[in-house]
Design a protein around this nucleic acid. Structure first.
Lengths: 251, 251
DNA sequence: CGACTTCTTGAGGAGACTCAAGGGTGGTGG
DNA sequence: CCACCACCCTTGAGTCTCCTCAAGAAGTCG
């Protein structure tokens, strides 16, 4: 079982164990979710807005982004997904997907059938509750981004975004310290922060001049986290590991 | 049991049946979640950001809003909650609440203990999956608002917000058509849309001049939904009722 | 009636946008 | 290996939306 080996040491498991320990049975149930794998290249669309929402994916390798288009043609990039993230969950609630999912690098995803998801709720309440928690964590990330979009100057948005990215990357790749590889063009950053590419460029340069970051085409470095944090203006979010209310593990 | 009667015909149930039918057992399990009730007046804080997140609430009557403050002192209002909404769920994932919850009118809430929530996942997989779905629906609403904050002009944001509010109110109060009661000052609207009160006022007047809406202190009327929709630039979201994958109801 | 909050209106300024053009960088094919 | 092309980044100048500051009108409550 190549798939199992691939998933076992994967960020998808780490995403859950960030909250609490998993038993062998839990990990087995989690792995059993994963269906057929699929590879895509940078720029490929995994799915498009408006489509029926029949499937959910687990991102195994690479980066993707979900984005949304307005009638006017404007596009807003909603979120960058890193390995271990589930893709397309919000669509479950709707008849048609609200967003498109595009590969930002070469990626590997595993399709998850809705039936498998339904079965998980029946057979493993602890995992189900953990997935619920992850949904709430996603909501918190949206909350922070929404707040930065509403209140924030360009520099605040960019600083906040970089900090969030760095935090998430560090969680899935413990060897990463202040430097990390990324797959975002300045155009992508602009769509994520809701400012124009031109102005994003000037904003990045201001952060470079402040010696807060280095931002290269593929590598970014955080030079002064304090300056960034001060710009962002939000406290760091600490995951709750005090989860006595969760259903007990079955082993 | 006064509480039961109060909850039985409540928007909280409607929120779930918007997706699928519930059995008597499901409704009973849902009602058993509800703990002690609490009343607050407009302006009261149900909970404050930074606090430990020990409890979740179900909003039974009235309107609340969750908001978040920056180090700079700026405040962003994240969401308006209507009767039937659960309050404080995102906090479950964190040690400290990211947002404050404030009453926008006289409200009645019911506290839900985390233990009761955990038990629900063990005893009623269908309800658990439905609550998961509602979380995804909430994420979609955040997605739309995030997009409007990123791409949108002031008028676009305001139009989108009013449409969203109206849609949600109509769902919980079927007798409402184009006019509805609200509990939002212009200052609140400004914090929700991320623009200044002064500019919000001018934006409202523009919408009034276009004969798109009436916006009074307590009553709003949608005069021309098409104009609003065109301004908002997003398609309406239709809930998915094709949910064969959900665990079966136990009766 | 008076004190308060909320809404409205005006004028000037700043941040972000648009349009436009020039310079790097990486990839492809001859 | 070099030439070419496409894409991405960078920089400049002018404009517009939205913000800030400030004061006045209108509605609300005791």
């Amino acid at each position: 079982m190549n798939d199992v080996a691939a998933i076992n040491d994967m960020p998808a498991v780490a995403r859950l164990t960030a909250f609490t320990e998993l038993g062998a049975r839990d990990i087995a149930d989690l792995i059993s979710l994963a269906g057929p794998m699929r590879q895509l290249e940078r720029g490929d669309h995994l799915c498009d807005e408006g489509e029926a929402s029949l499937r959910v994916y687990l991102l195994l390798e690479g980066w993707t982004a979900s984005s949304l288009s307005f009638a006017s043609g404007a596009r807003q990039m909603l979120k960058v997904h890193l390995p271990g993230d589930m893709l397309g969950l919000p669509s479950l609630a709707l008849t048609n997907r609200p967003d498109s999912i595009v590969a930002l690098s070469k990626i590997v995803v595993s399709a998850i059938s809705l039936d498998a998801l339904g079965r998980l709720f029946e057979t493993n309440a602890r995992l189900a509750a953990l997935m619920y928690l992850i949904s709430q964590e996603e909501r918190v990330m949206m909350i922070d981004r929404l707040a930065m979009m509403g209140c924030g100057s360009a520099i605040q948005r960019v600083a906040g975004l970089i900090l969030e990215l760095h935090r998430r990357i560090m969680r899935s790749e413990p060897e990463v310290t202040d430097s990390f590889e990324h797959h975002l063009s300045q155009h992508d950053l602009a769509e994520l922060t809701g400012i124009t590419p031109v102005h994003l460029n000037r904003t990045l340069q201001q952060l470079r001049q402040d010696k807060a970051i280095k931002w290269g085409r593929r590598t970014a470095t955080i030079l002064d986290r304090d300056v960034l944090t001060r710009h962002a203006g939000l406290p760091p979010r600490v995951l709750n590991r005090d989860l006595g209310w969760l259903p007990a593990s079955k082993g």
